[in-house]
Nucleic acid binder design. Sequence first.
DNA 1: GCCAACGTTGGC
DNA 2: GCCAACGTTGGC
Length: 156
Amino acid sequence: MNHWLVKSEPETYSIDHLKKDKVADWHGVRNYQARNYLIKMEPGDMILFYHSNATPPGIAGLSRVKKKAHPDLSQFDKKSEFFEKRATQEKPIWFCPDLEFVEKFDEVLSLDTLREEKKLEGLELLRKGSRLSVIPVSAPHFKKILKMAGSKFDAE
DNA sequence: GCCAACGTTGGC
DNA sequence: GCCAACGTTGGC
C-alpha cells in the first residue's frame, strides 16, 4: 500500500467539499509527473488532503483511493478549462482516480508545523519550491503526520 | 537538442 | 502583489 499527498485550493475544492460529495474524481491535474503518480494509485492507498493557497496552508484531512485512474473526462470537454485538444477518446492524455472522504482533521496541520518536525525531513512537500500537486509520502512520514494531526484513523 | 521566453504554482 | 522555482513552448 502506498501513501500520497494531493493539493487543492480550498476555494476550488476543499476537504469539506469532499466530505459532502463522499467521492470525487480527481480531474484537472495537468502535469505529467503528477499524472504518473495518479496512474500508480491503487484502491486502498491513503491520501493526505492538502490545502494550498490557504491561511494557513496545510494538511486538512484524509482521503482514500476508491477507484484506479480512468480517463479524465474534462480533457474532452471543449467548454472546460481543462480541455486538451491533443487528446482523443482512443488516446486520452490525462487520467484521474476516484478519491473518497475518510476524515477531516479537527485542525489543519499547518505547513509551518510540518517544517518544525525533524522526523519529516525529506518529505517532498517541504522541499523549497515544491510545486507538484500529487506527491508520494513514505509510510513513516504518513504515520507521523497522522499522529501530529491527532487523526482517529488507524494507520495499521 | 538547446535555450530563451513565457506561464503556472503557491508561499509569503 | 511579489517572486522563486519550476514546466512548457517554439524558434533555430
